[in-house]
């Protein structure tokens, strides 16, 4: 029941925004953003705090109401899908966040298994809730946790893990889900450099396996490691192209109004044994945006 869900469901690999408008109480977070992403692409999104980066991510899972324009995922209009169809599309989209967004009281293994929960029926859900994941899912979870180096932590309470470890559990959840489209919203903002590299590599691996990857970054240096960079400014796409074309001037334009000397406060790396130097932030412009 859980082993081969991919074939039945439509792909969600490519997506497009056409003049998308999202407003929160009269303030437009996205103000006519247009963006087209081909299946299998890899791109970084940069922009000042409040430029609409997180909203761009939320609009792709229909997490916010759309007040204008069109959003298509896998060629289908996301905002006109039925509830069941929406679930199917969401199943194919994996997300990873700055704040991990795991359920802290559950064991790490169960959190990783939740990557698959969208594909379960009511009975399977209850069975998983009461007795834990079935054998097939359990072995996939074990494999995913192994891949992120947490093979021995499946039974550990997620809240007892360090921040870096929790982010790796979140990556394991992605691996279990094996989505077509990976949305990473500031995934490195709250983790140590070692975890950053590890998570980054895992995301790249998913991309190599065919998933489209969009990462929201405040660190422009990291963004330059992507073949395509999209910059948002005031809810619109201000730059879209290869990182070489992203000049210092263009960056200043993008971050205009954002204090470039603003101090970036990183949480201490927690017990991962990673080096304590701060992550490369020479080009980080907007600091850690709080969510």
């Amino acid at each position: 029941m859980t082993s081969s869900p991919r074939s039945k469901e439509p792909s969600a690999r490519g997506f497009a925004l056409e003049k998308a408008v999202v407003s929160f109480r009269g303030t437009a977070a996205l103000d006519g953003a247009t963006l087209e992403v081909e299946p299998g692409e890899r791109l970084a999104v940069v922009g000042a705090s409040g430029a609409g980066k997180t909203t761009l991510f939320r609009v792709l899972t229909r997490g916010v109401a759309l007040s204008g324009g069109r959003v298509t995922v896998g060629g289908r209009d996301l905002y006109s899908l039925s509830k069941g169809e929406l679930k199917g599309v969401r199943r194919r989209i994996g997300s990873i966040y700055q704040a991990y967004n795991l359920v802290p009281q559950l064991p790490a293994g169960v959190n990783a298994a939740l990557g698959e929960v969208g594909g379960m029926g009511a009975l399977a859900t209850l069975r998983t809730f009461l007795a834990g994941p079935d054998a097939a899912l359990a072995s996939r979870v074990a494999g995913a946790l192994d891949r992120v180096g947490l093979g021995d932590k499946a039974r550990a309470r997620t809240a007892d893990l360090s921040g870096g470890q929790q982010q790796r559990v979140a990556v394991a959840r992605l691996l279990v889900q094996s989505p077509d489209l990976v949305l990473a919203d500031e995934p490195f903002a709250a983790v140590d450099p070692v975890t950053t590299e590890r998570v980054f590599e895992a995301l790249l691996e998913l991309n190599h396996e065919g998933a489209t990857l969009m990462v929201n970054l405040h660190d422009v240096g990291l963004a330059r490691r992507f073949p395509r960079v999209v910059a948002l400014r005031e809810g619109q796409v201000a730059f879209d192209g290869p990182p070489e074309r992203l000049s210092e001037e263009a960056l200043n334009e993008i971050y205009a109004g954002d204090d470039p000397h603003q101090e970036v406060v990183l949480p201490e790396p927690q017990g991962d044994g990673g080096p304590k130097e701060p992550i490369q932030l020479a080009e980080g412009r907007d600091g850690v945006s709080s969510h």
């Binding site: 997490g63 679930k87 969401r90 194919r92 989209i93 967004n101 929960v117 969208g118 889900q177 969510h291």
Partner: peptide, 21 residues
């Protein structure tokens, strides 16, 4: 609510989001 929203974003239904989130 963020862990709950994260589950819904991966296609979890109301029952699943309630039980696990």
């Amino acid at each position: 609510s963020r862990p709950v929203e994260a589950l819904r974003a991966t296609g979890a239904g109301a029952l699943q989001a309630f039980l696990f989130g």
